[in-house]
Write a protein that binds this DNA or RNA. Structure first.
Length: 270
DNA sequence: AACTGATGCAACCGCAGCTAG
DNA sequence: CCTAGCTGCGGTTGCATCAGT
């Protein structure tokens, strides 16, 4: 990777891995919640028109490609995260058998799933079980998920066991950490999703609903030209439904953090 | 407790296809 | 037709996190 420098925020609470490319001056690496909000707010207001220009206009030091990817794979309101159902797994298996690594085509048959997500899912959960010559590997208990059926990582697992296990392999619960790339950001509050893999959650029971309600209003305001129902646009939050997010900011610091972000995003819309 | 290898997944890269000028 | 710019896709990488030793 042509990374000439690595900038790290040394703040203990928020330490992001941010990379700046010297040549382009563009930021690389994990997206921060601020960047997410900038992008969401911008798209909410101006829609998607040109990723490169949008990136600049939104004040993001990101390539258009990066913005597009972030939006498509993560911020889009209709992105479904969480468990792959038995039906979805079956569809992936069927389509992959028929079309091979045509992830976008497979994704087209799985509403709410992104090609990247399916690709990752295939490589991490299915490949070893369904490839012609699975590489034998050490049998051991699943690492992350206590709810995983033992055998997901076991080559001896039969398909029915495998499928049932796969369905529980991914947490159905979304956290605010799922909403943003903050899953890789270091924060004080660490949540744990169903996979057992710790995820950062900017969470704190009690204040989260209020905050997200405010957030919803922010993006679906009356004066917002980009409202639900308008062709080609849906609010990043409306379809998903806040109640689907499980989160909870744990401390005043983080509450203030989000509040600042809301204010910031609001400014973007003015 | 410290170390190490394995795992999962977000994000990047390069290429191909499409389209406007 | 040619070219440049944009978008979409698939492969790959990097790193946080976990389990095992």
């Amino acid at each position: 990777m042509e990374l000439d420098s690595i900038a790290r925020d040394s703040t203990p609470a928020v330490m992001e891995r941010v990379h700046f490319c010297k040549k382009t001056g563009l930021k690389k690496g994990t997206w921060s919640p601020q960047e997410d909000l900038k992008l969401i707010a911008y798209i909410n207001k101006y829609r998607i028109w040109n990723w490169n220009e949008m990136s600049k206009a939104a004040g993001l030091s990101r390539s258009g490609k990066s913005c597009r990817l972030r939006w498509m794979n993560y911020l889009r309101p209709d992105v479904k995260r969480g468990n792959f159902s038995m039906e979805e797994v079956e569809t992936i298996k069927k389509l992959h058998k028929a079309r091979g690594n045509k992830w976008s085509e497979i994704a087209a048959n799985l509403p709410g799933r992104t090609d990247n997500e399916i690709k990752n899912f295939w490589h991490t959960h299915l490949k070893k079980h369904y490839s012609k010559n699975p590489i034998p590997h050490k049998v051991k208990e699943p690492k992350h998920d206590k709810n995983k059926v033992a055998g997901l990582n076991t080559p001896l697992a039969n398909e029915s066991n495998l499928e049932s296990s796969i369905c529980f392999a991914i947490s159905p619960q979304l956290s605010i950490g799922d909403f943003s790339s903050s899953s890789k950001d270091s924060t004080d509050e660490i949540g744990e999703n169903e996979t057992g893999k710790k995820k950062n959650t900017y969470s704190s029971p009690g204040t989260a609903d209020q905050e997200l309600n405010g957030m919803e209003e922010l993006f679906i305001g009356e004066d917002n030209p980009m409202e639900m129902g308008e062709p080609g646009f849906t609010s990043p939050f409306h379809q998903v439904g806040f109640e689907e997010y499980s989160y909870g900011l744990g401390n005043d610091e983080l509450t203030g953090f989000w509040f600042d972000l809301f204010l910031f995003a609001q400014q973007l819309q003015v």
